[in-house]
């Protein structure tokens, strides 16, 4: 693979509340059209890294104090989340974060409003989501808060796709889901990547499934990159398996 990088992180450091160092010196890159996995234990700094990219750390009183983040060659280190969404960089938050009182369809709509689509475009975008997630079509009038965990993950991913993203940051998509549902979600990620060339940067604690679908992986430990490599290589390295991946 020698596609250009869509995303590059250059030695970034993130501090919460001016004292808590959550990410120190993380560098990573995502090639256009690839799926990249961030692996590591709870609290390793995966979520913070993703939120730093999407411009969401500021909402949690965090700040990128060192390093630079480039998206499509542009410096986005301090860009606002809404501007990034408009440029095709969307994050699906850990724990799904659907709007519980909105219907499934309203949740999906909300994802598209940032790009101010006309009514026709909006409905086409909706059709596309139902094509990938047929299950959501049956639930479209239900309040999202009453759907199952897997369905909420679908709503959250579908909502992000409504923005027509080029790069999706997926934070712990398998969290709390049944194995079959995890498989289904990753299948759809794979399909979107293949058919629509959407790039993904996903964080996972479930290394088995992540290594199976991703092309490249980073192992994050204590806010640093501990190892990286093609997933084919990572998954057979004995030292990593016992130390980090629990395979």
């Amino acid at each position: 693979m020698s596609a250009p990088y869509i995303l590059q992180l250059n030695q970034i450091e993130v501090i919460y509340d001016q004292v808590i160092l959550a990410v120190k010196n993380v560098s990573l890159a995502v090639r256009q059209g690839s799926i990249v996995a961030l692996l590591g234990a709870n609290g390793a700094g995966k979520s913070t890294t993703l939120k730093a990219i999407a411009g969401l750390v500021r909402a949690e009183i965090g700040e990128v104090v060192q390093g630079r983040i480039y998206y499509q060659g542009l410096d986005i280190t301090h860009a606002a989340a809404a501007d990034l969404v408009n440029q095709g960089l969307v994050q699906v938050l850990e724990g799904r974060h659907c709007f519980p009182h909105l219907t499934v369809e309203e949740n999906l709509y909300s994802g598209a409003f940032a790009r101010k689509p006309r009514a026709v475009e909006l409905n086409q975008a909706l059709e596309r989501i139902y094509h990938y997630f047929p299950r959501l079509l049956k639930l479209r009038k239900n309040q999202a808060g009453y759907t199952s965990g897997g369905e909420q993950q679908m709503v959250a991913i579908g909502r992000a796709l409504m923005a027509n993203p080029k790069l999706v940051l997926l934070d712990e998509p398998s969290m709390g889901l049944a194995p079959l549902m995890v498989e289904e979600i990753f299948q759809i990620v794979h399909q979107l990547n293949q058919e629509e060339k959407v790039s993904f940067l996903l964080s996972e604690q479930n290394a088995t499934v992540a290594l199976q679908y991703a092309h490249y992986g980073y192992i994050i430990e204590n806010g640093r990159v501990a190892a990286e490599g093609e997933t084919k290589v990572l998954s057979v390295r004995d030292d990593l398996q016992s130390l980090y991946l629990g395979l």
Partner: peptide
């Protein structure tokens, strides 16, 4: 659309930020 957006913000501010509101 404004109405849906308003209700979305009421439900979850972080998620609203994440979808570009």
């Amino acid at each position: 659309r404004i109405g849906i957006t308003l209700r979305a913000v009421a439900d979850d501010q972080l998620a609203a930020l994440a979808v570009g509101i």
